[in-house]
């Protein structure tokens, strides 16, 4: 590779970091830049619920210090949002009005909180937990809260309910079985989930969705259930999984559906643009369709593989996602799925 190669990775999660490390290992000379609109250093997402209840501090979430990026000559640009990608010019525009040129680009932008369309009318009153910025807001709100209502859920919601209970909060979980993320809950799994939540002291309501309104009242909120009944709480949290952060790609010419569409070598339709992790929809030649994956392990594996492909070492993705869902003691086994719930 020429020494003036500039590999740019957008995303500071497991896929992005794994890709950056692999690139550095395989190409010691290249210029590598990792850009993320999040301000936090790479952190353990599974510890976020603990953080929200004050069980740990930001430094306990950090996976690697800034120093390690400096040592590996990986330019880390945090809190910097890519506004626009122009593949024809191999150019990125950042929100603070700066151009960044790349020779190869990896999109590992992950996902942000999924919000339900029928919650749009009261979305401002719902707390989400997609990233550390969300977590800070939740943590601040949690300090004054004693009663919480959780709507959803998803992979992280059960961990959150557990930590909230440990912190002495009263938790009501309004279960949206058909909208559970990433896959709808079948009867059997729903029972397991309910049982687990009950064992934590969480009150589960499986016939109370969809909530039709949330409005502020006094220091807290009042929810309206489908039957018109009202419920008071201090805080309402929305856990419906995530959607890929690909809005900034509109107009770029990069093909997207729910995520970035990539082939079996993680290449997008645009030259030298790749995608991996939660934001990618990967083509399966045997299925003749795109599949998605979630989870930390998958993201890491894809990041590494994408980096290898970027360097010309063709490696085809394993169609068997390595992860099975482990949701706070409830296991959901699945090999792959075609789309998010």
């Amino acid at each position: 590779m020429p020494k003036d190669d500039h590999y740019v990775i957008i995303g500071n999660g497991p896929a992005g970091n794994s890709a950056a490390d692999t690139l550095r290992k395989e190409d010691p000379e290249a210029k590598i830049t990792l850009i993320s609109d999040e301000k936090s250093l790479y952190y353990y997402k599974h510890r976020v619920p603990l953080y929200t209840v004050g069980g740990c501090e930001p430094e306990d979430l950090s996976i690697r210090p800034y120093r390690s990026y400096l040592e590996n000559r990986i330019r880390l640009r945090l809190g910097q949002r890519v506004e626009k990608v122009v593949p024809a010019e191999k150019l990125l525009y950042l929100n603070h009005m700066e151009k960044v040129h790349y020779t190869k680009l990896i999109l590992a932008v992950g996902a942000s909180a999924r919000r339900l369309p029928n919650h749009a009318g009261f979305a401002d009153h719902l707390y989400c937990l997609a990233g550390l910025d969300d977590a800070r807001r939740v943590r601040k709100a949690m300090m004054a809260a004693s009663r919480l209502v959780v709507l959803g859920g998803d992979l992280i919601s059960m961990g959150f309910a557990r930590e909230a209970r440990k912190a002495g909060k009263e938790v009501v979980f309004i279960l949206y079985s058909s909208l559970f993320w990433p896959v709808s809950l079948k009867e059997e799994i729903q029972q397991s989930v309910t049982k687990r939540l009950n064992s934590l002291g969480v009150k589960v309501m499986s016939d109370a969705e969809p909530v039709t309104d949330v409005r502020p009242e006094g220091e807290g909120y009042t929810l309206t259930l489908p039957d018109g009944e009202e419920m008071s709480t201090d805080l309402v949290l929305s856990f419906f999984g995530s959607v890929p952060n690909i809005r900034f790609l509109v107009g770029s010419g990069i093909n997207t559906e729910k995520g970035v569409l990539v082939d079996h070598l993680m290449r997008s339709n645009q030259e030298d643009v790749y995608a991996c992790g939660d934001c990618a929809q990967i083509y399966n030649p045997e299925l003749k369709d795109y599949w998605v994956s979630v989870g930390w392990g998958n993201a890491e594996a894809q990041g590494e593989l994408t980096a290898m492909n970027l360097l010309g070492r063709e490696k085809v993705i394993d169609y068997q996602p390595k992860e099975i869902f482990e949701m706070d003691g409830v296991t959901i086994r699945t090999s792959w799925w075609k789309t998010f719930a």
Partner: peptide, 17 residues
């Protein structure tokens, strides 16, 4: 700024974590 900064010419781009 009046024009978009070229690469590495924006101070915001150099702000450290």
């Amino acid at each position: 700024p009046p024009v978009c900064h070229e690469e590495d010419r924006s101070i915001a781009g150099w702000a450290e974590p």
